[in-house]
C-alpha cells in the first residue's frame, strides 16, 4: 500500500510505505530519508529542487561492505556503497536526506554539479575517499590526498594503520 504525500510526512505509519516522486520515503528518528535509485537520481533531485530544496548542504558516502544487513525499505536492494545527500529547504525550514545505492562493480553516480554547484568539492572528496566516480564532473581529481596516492582511504578494506612516508619528487 502506498500513498503519494508531501515531505511533511504527516500520513506516515509503520506498515505503509510512503512514496515521494515514486521513491520510498522513510522516517529515520524524526528525519526524512528518501531512497532514490541511481537511474532516477538526477531527475528526482531536479524535482526536489523545484519543490524548494534549493540548497545542498552535504554530500557524502558510506561503504556498507561490512554491514550489508542494514534496514532498507522494500524494493531497495542493498549495495556496497551509498551516496548520501542532505538537502535543505530554507523557506520551509525542513531537511531531506537522499540515499542512493551504488553497486561495487560500477561505482559511479551522475554529478550534481549542474544542479548544485556547491557539490563540486564534496563529490571530489567522495571520489578521493571512496573511489566513486561522478560522471560529468568538471574536475574529477583527488582533493584531499596527494594526486599520486593509491587507494581510497575511507573504504572499509583500506587499512587504517600508519604507513611510511610517500615522497613525491622531494630532494632526498
Amino acid at each position: 500500500m502506498s500513498a503519494e504525500v508531501t515531505t511533511d510526512g504527516t500520513e506516515m505509519s509503520e506498515d505503509e510505505v510512503t512514496l515521494l516522486h515514486g521513491c520510498p520515503l522513510v522516517d529515520s528518528r524524526g528525519q526524512q530519508v528518501l531512497f532514490v535509485s541511481r537511474d532516477r537520481y538526477l531527475e528526482v533531485l531536479r524535482l526536489l529542487t523545484d519543490e524548494g530544496f534549493a540548497m545542498c548542504v552535504d554530500l557524502t558516502a558510506v561503504d556498507y561492505s561490512r554491514f550489508m544487513t542494514r534496514e532498507l525499505p522494500d524494493g531497495v536492494t542493498a549495495e556496497r556503497f551509498e551516496v548520501v545527500v542532505n538537502l535543505l529547504d530554507i523557506s520551509a525550514r525542513r531537511r531531506l536526506r537522499i540515499r542512493v545505492q551504488v553497486p561495487e562493480n560500477d561505482p559511479s553516480v551522475p554529478s550534481l554539479f549542474d544542479l548544485h554547484p556547491g557539490t563540486e568539492a564534496m563529490e571530489r572528496e567522495v571520489f578521493d575517499m571512496f573511489g566513486i566516480a561522478f560522471s560529468d564532473h568538471p574536475d574529477p581529481s583527488r582533493i584531499l590526498m596527494p594526486e599520486d596516492w593509491i587507494g581510497h582511504p575511507l573504504r572499509k578494506d583500506y587499512e587504517t594503520g600508519s604507513i611510511p612516508v610517500q615522497f613525491k619528487g622531494a630532494p632526498s
Partner: peptide, 13 residues
Amino acid sequence: SQKMAPVLRQVYD
C-alpha cells in the same frame, strides 16, 4: 599530513 610532508621538507631545506 602525507601531502604536507614534502612541503615541510622543502621549507626546512
